[in-house]
Design a binder for these strands. Structure first.
Length: 847
RNA sequence: GCGGACGUGGCGGAACCGGUAGACGCCGGAGACUUAAAAUCUUCUGCCCUUCGGGGCGUGCGGGUUCGAGUCCCGCCGUCCGCACCA
């Protein structure tokens, strides 16, 4: 056995062995319990980055650990291969998006293989493959037939740089999520998926996802945005251009007697009507539209209103007429685009009322005595009972809401209703590199689904990207088709599906991939739901919500008996790195700086460099570290070990040269220990035959702790447990226990550093692969110590410690503690007032 | 503004249910081996004081509960994340 572990040799060797033996192929027909471990599949951008390595290492440790514990494990990998970077590359580098994508996949697959992940490559998927997206087209038609897909003219978010439509979710602060360009509004005919039909169940379903981070559940809850309240009609005192009334929505119908004005959005039909007869109104509306939508602008934007001169009747008292304003803070796309203002109990309404001199009437008071207290500069939003509200007086808010809704429904001027923030999912994209939408447009028949036997509708290869826009639109032949219904010549839909559709069901296809159907229900159900899904928080809303919706939609139309696709979710932190700047302010890559005499310098010029914040690895800050050369230098195991060490997996991991060096050293330390056993030479053999009880205890405690920590995805703690065991073994005197501890250590580290473990396992003469070995069993009797350290405190301050048998009597511990010199010195002869004894832990003497 | 997370040595972090704060790793110091270096090994390493026995302080800040608080409660401060004129 070599003095040093040679990862380059070992990595390649074992990776080949695993592949040849099909070690990690998942069997559908296995009698073992099943475990489905999945990491979010990568976009094939070119090369693997450290974030991928961290993500997949975590999943890999869990997958290997589950295998060792007797599970049939499905741990697949694929490619989220459609999307715009491929088209950007096509424009910039004059390569076909398909060629670019496939070559990236090849590169990245080779890179992933070198890290030795326990993946079932036989189930590999690329979403740009017609074998995949053809089935997606079939599923789209299934949803279409079930009435869950519809087409409508709608104002969309148009990204003028990418020349495409964006979903609401893809607009961040009024800018395209990818291009960063200011988004414009345009009217286009778009395909929509009825995700809002599922709003309630998507919200309720969150309650059962107890293995999801609370944070993600909250984010989805907020995104779905359920508000319950009253929708009711305001009648105009005198009509304006054919309008007699309009509807408003409120979550606080109990405060209706506090109403002092009504307000509508600038693009509300009534506002438009007013504008058509009044120039000043039109001018005000124009001004509203100018305002920016960024967070900062909204923060500082003044609440502005335009008094239309119109009056509306209070629904509970026709004698009360409220002024109607057009207001810049009322949004057309939320609720009904109209509100009533209750200044006393809503800060925004209060600001507005003060500005325009409107009355402020308190209708909620914390107590009867405060019923007449005036409202100052701050709206009252606390608890209390209704006042100044006629028949509602004395009721709580909750009862008041119920009362008003009841009356509105009985009198026919309103109804209790629920308003959602969630919108239907617009899936049309004016892009080439995506799944073609399987629809044909016929002048006579309208939109007609492509017949199933014509699927897949394959993307044409002969396209050009020299002008912006969708090349499918200007293709000479592809976009022409005969109408499946009447046979007349018709146009093929040239929009493609949002790539989030591709990632909404890939986990089902991994579980089952027949040639003639998207999936086989029984096989898919045997694996689903995914037991542990691991990926970045950036997908907390979009991808995870869409995948949940898609799964529920398939379930509703009877294709699948699974409601929630991901039983456990884990969102891992990013890999970060220090940033460096040159004196002229430009960013420097890590290999461009050097440390000399404790000072940071630019390697090439010798001028002083500056180190900046530790930030997420990004091309713009130039602080990326490419995993491949690191693997070349240190081997896969050292990299894997580093990815798991130190930082808790949900937090950021700062990459450092020193860190990877440390991991490399530990891999070699493990090797030296294993070598002792393999060579049958060293101290571990030559010792006596007595059992080393403390070491045995440490061993069993470690087996249990590592298992519990891997189970909890607390890899950093599992790593620490292993370090402790390795330290204990190294310090232990030769004994048979020491030898078996080393053998067990190899098993414990095998999910993390599998290449080293396989090599050591073989060198120690053990049969088979360590990858097929069972996780060691724990002897529960060895988990407890028979001697414990007791802390001795005086007035809560530690003064001494003493050893005692586990389970020693309270009186004995008290006596031992009082006998301590150190305790006596502190007590100065005084008698203790009280002694608290916590068995097996401490004695606290109160003086 | 709303919602959430977090704050522990020079650094990453550990600490079960309130019971010895700082496990484990990194960095750093001293020493051994070596012609030398690397590798490896031994050892020290929260801060301050010390007559080297010890003593004091210490988990963002200020209070409180308790025999005992990193942990629980109240009030601040700070950092990060998500959403946002949501009626």
């Amino acid at each position: 056995m070599a003095a040093r572990f040679n990862p380059l040799e070992a990595d390649a060797h074992w990776q080949k062995v695993w592949e040849e033996r099909g070690t990690f192929h998942a069997s559908d027909s296995s009698g073992k319990p099943k475990a489905y471990i999945l990491e979010m599949f990568p976009y094939p951008s070119g090369r693997i980055h450290m974030g991928h390595v961290r993500n997949y290492t975590m999943g890999d440790v869990l997958a290997r650990f589950r295998r060792m514990n007797g599970f049939e494990v499905l741990h697949p990998m694929g490619w989220d291969a459609f999307g715009m970077p491929a088209e950007n590359a096509a424009m910039e580098k004059k390569v076909h998006p398909g060629a670019w994508t496939r070559s990236n996949i090849e590169t990245m697959k080779a890179q992933l293989k070198r890290i030795g992940f326990a993946l079932d490559w036989s189930r590999e998927i690329a979403t740009c493959d017609p074998d995949y997206y053809g089935h997606e087209q079939a599923l789209f038609l299934d949803l279409y037939e079930a009435g869950l897909v519809y087409r409508k003219q709608s104002e969309v978010n148009w990204d003028p740089v990418d020349m495409t439509v964006l979903a609401n979710e893809q607009v961040i602060d009024g800018r395209g999520w990818r291009s960063g360009a200011l988004v414009e509004r345009r009217k286009l005919s778009q395909w929509f998926l009825k995700i809002t039909d599922f709003a309630d169940e998507l919200l309720d379903g969150l309650g059962e996802l107890d293995q999801w981070p609370e944070k993600v559940r909250l984010m989805q809850e907020n995104w779905i945005g359920k508000s319950q309240g009253l929708r009711f009609r305001f009648d105009l005192v005198e009509p304006v251009v054919d309008h007699n009334s309009f509807e408003v929505f409120t979550t606080r119908p109990d405060t209706i007697f506090g109403a002092s004005f009504a307000a509508i959005a600038a693009d509300h039909p009534i506002a438009q009507a007013v504008a058509s007869i009044r120039e000043d109104a039109a001018a005000f509306i124009e001004e509203c539209k100018k305002g920016g939508t960024t967070a900062a602008e909204l923060e500082t934007a003044e609440k502005k209103g335009f008094d239309t001169g119109l009056r509306v009747r209070h629904p509970l008292d026709p004698d009360i007429a409220l002024p109607l304003y057009i207001a810049n803070f009322v949004l057309m796309d939320y609720g009904t685009g109209a509100i009533f203002g209750c200044p006393a109990h809503d800060q925004r309404d209060l600001d507005f009322a003060r500005k325009y001199g409107l009355p402020v009437t308190r209708v909620v008071a914390p107590s009867v005595e405060e019923a007449a207290d005036p409202i100052g500069g701050e709206a009252y939003t606390g608890p209390g009972r209704l006042v100044n509200s006629r028949f509602l007086d004395g009721l709580t808010a909750q009862d008041g809401i119920r009362e008003v809704i009841g009356r509105a429904e009985a009198e026919g001027w309103g109804e209790g209703t629920t308003v959602w923030r969630l919108r239907d999912w617009g899936v049309s994209r004016q892009r080439y590199w995506g799944t073609p939408i399987p629809i044909i447009h016929c002048d006579a028949c309208g939109a007609v689904p492509v017949p199933r036997e014509q699927l897949p509708i394959v993307l044409p290869e002969d396209v050009s990207f020299d002008i912006p826009g969708n090349p499918l639109d200007r293709h000479p032949s592809w976009n022409k088709a005969d109408c499946p219904r009447c046979g007349a010549s018709a146009r093929r839909e040239t929009d493609t599906l949002d790539t989030f559709v591709d990632s909404s069901w890939y986990f089902i296809r991994f579980a089952s991939q027949p040639a003639d159907a998207p999936f086989e229900r029984a096989d898919a159900e045997s694996w689903l739901p995914v037991d542990q899904y691991i990926g970045g928080v950036e997908h907390a809303i979009l991808h995870l919500l869409y995948a949940r919706f898609w799964t529920r939609a398939l379930s509703r139309i009877g294709r699948l008996g699974v409601e929630e696709p991901f039983k456990g979710l884990f969102t891992q932190g990013m890999v970060t790195h220090e940033t460096y700047k040159a004196p002229d302010g430009r960013w420097l890559a890590p290999d461009e700086v050097e440390s000399r005499d404790g000072a940071l310098i630019v390697a090439a010029t010798g001028e002083a460099a500056e180190s900046g914040r530790v930030e997420k690895m990004s091309k713009s800050k130039r602080n990326t570290v490419d995993p491949e050369p690191i693997v070349d230098q240190y081997g896969a195991d050292a990299v894997r070990w580093f990815m798991l060490s130190d930082s808790p997996p949900e937090r950021d991991l700062p990459w450092s040269e020193a860190g990877i060096e440390g991991s490399w050293r530990f891999v070699q330390r493990l090797w030296r220990l294993a070598s002792e056993v393999a060579e049958g030479s060293h101290s571990s053999w030559l010792g006596g035959d007595a059992e080393d009880k403390p070491l045995l205890r440490k061993l069993h405690q470690t087996i249990a702790a590592v298992a519990a920590n891997i189970e909890a995805l607390a890899f950093n703690k599992a790593v620490a447990n292993i370090y402790e065991l390795a330290n204990a073994i190294e310090k232990a005197a030769p004994s048979p226990t020491r030898q078996s501890a080393i053998e067990t250590l190899v098993l414990l580290v095998s999910p993390m550093v599998p290449h080293l473990a396989e090599t050591a396992w073989a060198a120690m003469g053990r049969d088979g692969l360590v990858s097929d070995a069972a996780w060691p069993t724990v002897d529960p009797a060895l988990l407890v110590e028979d001697e414990v350290t007791i802390a001795v405190q005086v007035n809560g301050k530690l003064r001494d410690t003493l050893m005692a048998a586990k389970g020693a009597a309270k009186e004995d511990l008290e006596a031992l503690a009082l006998a301590s010199d150190k305790v006596q010195r502190v007590l100065e002869g005084k008698a203790p007032r009280k002694v608290i004894v916590v068995p097996d832990r401490l004695v606290n003497i109160v003086a």
